[in-house]
Amino acid sequence: MRCVLVEVLKEQINSHVICSESTMRVEVEKSSMHGIHEDHLRLNDGANTACRLRSNSTYVFADIPLSGCGTELEEDGDYLRFKNEITTFDDISDVITRKHLLEVQFYCQYPKRGNVTLAFTAHRPVVSVWDKGFGRFTYQFEFYTNDQYQEMVDPTLYPVVYEIKSRIYMQIEATSTVNNTVLFVESCRASPYDNQNSQRTYSIIENGCDVDSTVQIHSPSHPRQFRFSMKAFKFIGMYDQVYISCTVLMCEAGRPNTRASQGCVSSTTSATSHHHHRKREAAVESDRHFVSQGPLRLKRAAESSESSALHLNLNLVFIAGCLLAAVGMISAVVMYKARMSKVKYQPLSTDDR
């Protein structure tokens, strides 16, 4: 037997990160990437054409929005941390790679309390993807004010504030140049973080089936829309916000073996059936894509009772004023009686002079 010692060395990659109020700019020096071609580098969201890396004679670089390109949000009590990474790939549409030659992780950290928090746009933009057989299409995930779906919540008002148990109205809409297609929402989950790998999640829809008992499905205006609502809730613990994320895909309308035609299925049936029909009819449905929106913030008890507290304070002021007036009246009477008690009566003179 022989013992072979292999020493694995990590090369130093020279990179720079510039953090602004709404974007991250990452720059990687080409001279430090030995044997790696820039065309085989990607960010977390490699399918989004708006998130492709660019280059010049010196750097490979990208300007990345804090709310896009696969950027993940982590937070603790004091900071928001936006993370992304540059990795190598074989095919831009693959979910795995066997050429993992480079990994450049980077992040920008912002204090929760400060001017930058006011400038951060929480609203998630439209997701643009490209899929073989379906071309280029987009997903838009939005919140609405009521079940009429006429008024979308203004993106500048995010995070959206709800009272607990009030109904949240959501819509996912796909646009595509390919006709005769339908949108299918396979799963939706809630999490206190904008991170699809978050350990703390709550299932809303699973395998096309409603899991949360308050979920209501609303009629769409066309097959590439999905409208649903649920009652607002709060994660137990020190969490003050909720993100909603869904796994979605596009299917050819009218085909019997697509995921959309199957609808709600059990997890076991879904895994077996999906593997079977994907091998036979891969062109009739797209890959699964991840969309998210948020955050939602529940109105604190102090905020929800603000108006009642105001009325209570006014009542207290009125009562206090009445008490002070009463005390003033009692004091005046006592002082008047005290002065009256000090008056001495003098007998009138009987002198007739």
Rank of each mutant, 00 (worst) to 15 (best):
Q12P: 03
N14E: 15
N14W: 05
H16L: 14
H16F: 15
V17Q: 01
I18Q: 15
S20F: 04
S31F: 03
M33Q: 02
H34Q: 11
H34V: 12
H37S: 12
D39G: 13
D39I: 02
D39K: 09
H40Y: 15
H40R: 06
R42P: 00
G46M: 03
A47F: 01
T49D: 13
C51S: 07
L53T: 00
R54V: 14
V60H: 00
D63N: 14
D63H: 12
I64A: 01
P65D: 13
P65F: 04
S67P: 00
S67N: 14
E72L: 13
L73Y: 01
L73E: 07
Y79F: 15
L80M: 15
R81Y: 03
F82K: 00
E85Y: 09
E85L: 02
I86L: 03
I92R: 10
T97G: 01
R98S: 11
E103Q: 13
Q109Y: 04
Y110M: 14
R113W: 10
V116E: 08
T121I: 12
R124L: 08
P125Q: 13
G135L: 07
F141P: 00
E142Y: 03
Y144E: 09
Y144R: 07
Y144K: 07
V153L: 07
Y158P: 00
Y162P: 01
Y162C: 08
I164E: 15
S166W: 05
R167I: 09
I168E: 03
Y169N: 05
I172L: 02
E173V: 07
E173D: 13
T175E: 15
V178T: 11
T181D: 02
V185D: 01
V185Q: 00
E186G: 04
R189G: 05
R189K: 11
R189C: 05
D194E: 09
N195E: 07
N197W: 02
N197K: 10
S198E: 12
Q199L: 10
Q199W: 06
R200F: 06
I205S: 01
E206F: 05
N207T: 10
N207Q: 12
N207D: 09
G208I: 01
G208Y: 02
D210T: 11
V211K: 03
I217Q: 10
I217N: 08
P220V: 06
Q225T: 07
S229G: 12
M230K: 01
A232K: 02
K234N: 06
F235L: 02
Y239W: 10
V242Q: 01
Y243N: 04
E252P: 04
G254N: 10
G254P: 12
R255V: 10
P256Y: 11
N257K: 09
R259S: 06
S261F: 01
Q262A: 11
V265K: 01
S266Q: 12
S267G: 05
T268F: 14
T269G: 05
T269E: 15
S273Y: 08
H274C: 11
H275T: 12
H275A: 14
R278W: 09
A283D: 13
E285F: 01
F290H: 10
V291S: 02
R297Y: 02
K299F: 06
A302H: 09
A302L: 09
E306R: 14
S307M: 10
L314E: 13
N315V: 10
N315F: 05
N315D: 14
L316F: 08
A320S: 13
G328Y: 08
S331Q: 13
V333L: 13
K337T: 05
S341A: 15
K344S: 08
L348E: 12
T350L: 10
